[in-house]
């Protein structure tokens, strides 16, 4: 897997709908073979970005490059290279699963032999082989979502563009799809660009995270770096669960290494240390106070910011909810 080559590149792409500026000049690139998670709250501009990339929206300013070449929607090869799973899309439901895939295959310009041979493979990949002859109208929402993925993969594209692919899927199907995505990226060298507003969808599988908000890219990083960056920003936090009838929060707070102590609803204590200094020594000081006051410590761990915390911080944190 070569992660160095940029396979898709957005340069200062802007798009407006009447008075609303949906994209305010976004620039980023996706490297060959990577899984790029495109995150953002609803209405951030994710679908607009994706629709521009796949050619459903062609009126915009800025440039997009695929394999280093300016995008040419009219070129046959452009459609060959991209597979697209749209959000909120319907099928002609009177078709059977197989009939729909055959039609998509023909429209993609594939020859009949390839279509015949490839349909069982993609159906197996998305675990829909048992409903091959079933009418689409009889499928559940999750199955339709899997069929959308199947049609996106049918012509064996190099880049898969997936707009909220996990929507409507049960936890098991989400898990299965994550495995499929990893396999497509690792074993077959496919590039995946997928959007979500749910962080758990992208957690654990993305090489790169791009966070979009109000039509602007506010962060591009790999998940580990992002967590680390926010861990440093937030400082060291230790979570302690202990039992003690005596009110000792004040004593801990009085320590010169402690910034503040928060008591959670379930009686856990979060100790925020001041930045700088040796963490081990800071923890020892705090624990000594607790032990000195006869506390029974049940649980103790260093808190790392989860991607959820980071994401909420990035998009404006709790102030946005207020």
């Amino acid at each position: 897997m070569n992660l160095a080559e940029s396979v898709v590149e957005f340069k200062d792409v802007k798009k407006s709908y009447k008075d609303v500026q949906a994209l305010k000049g976004i620039s980023f690139s996706i490297r060959k073979g990577e899984i790029f998670g495109y995150l953002g709250p609803n209405g951030a501009g994710k679908t607009t970005t994706i629709k521009i990339l796949v050619g459903l929206i062609r009126k915009y300013s800025g440039s997009i490059f695929i394999d280093g070449e300016p995008i040419d929607y009219g070129e046959h090869g452009f459609h060959r290279i991209l597979g697209y799973l749209p959000q909120d899309v319907g099928f002609q439901e009177w078709r059977t699963v197989e009939h729909a895939l055959k039609t998509f295959g023909k429209l993609s310009g594939l020859d009949s032999k390839f279509i015949r041979e490839h349909i069982p493979n993609v159906l197996e990949l998305v675990t829909l082989e048992d409903v091959r002859k079933k009418k689409i109208s009889k499928l559940s929402g999750g199955m339709k979502q899997k069929l959308l993925l199947a049609q996106a993969m049918l012509h064996d594209p190099e880049i898969l563009v997936l707009d909220e692919p996990m929507t409507g899927l049960d936890p098991l199907s989400r898990f299965q799809l994550k495995k499929v995505f990893k396999r497509l990226s690792k074993d077959e060298g496919k590039t995946l660009f997928f959007s979500s507003h749910v962080l758990s969808d992208v957690e654990g599988i993305c090489n790169t995270l791009g966070v979009l908000d109000y039509g602007k890219i506010i962060k591009i990083s790999n998940p580990k770096d992002l967590e680390e960056e926010y861990r440093l920003l937030m400082g060291d936090i230790v979570e302690v669960k202990y039992f003690n009838d005596a009110p000792i929060v004040k004593d801990v707070e009085d320590l010169d290494v402690v910034e503040k102590v928060e008591v959670t609803d379930d009686k856990r204590h979060l100790i925020y240390f001041k930045s700088g200094g040796n963490l081990d020594e800071k923890i020892s000081k705090a624990l000594s106070i607790l032990v000195e006051h006869g506390s029974k410590i049940r649980n103790f761990n260093l808190v790392s910011p989860s991607l959820d915390d980071v994401y909420v911080q990035l998009i404006g944190g709790e102030q946005r909810l207020a």
């Binding site: 459903l56 697209y84 749209p86 319907g90 310009g109």
Partner: peptide, 16 residues
């Protein structure tokens, strides 16, 4: 109804 359900999105992304 097909346009409302975005059915044509799946056709338009192909070389048609």
């Amino acid at each position: 109804s097909e346009m409302n359900k975005n059915v044509y999105d799946l056709f338009l992304i192909r070389p048609v």
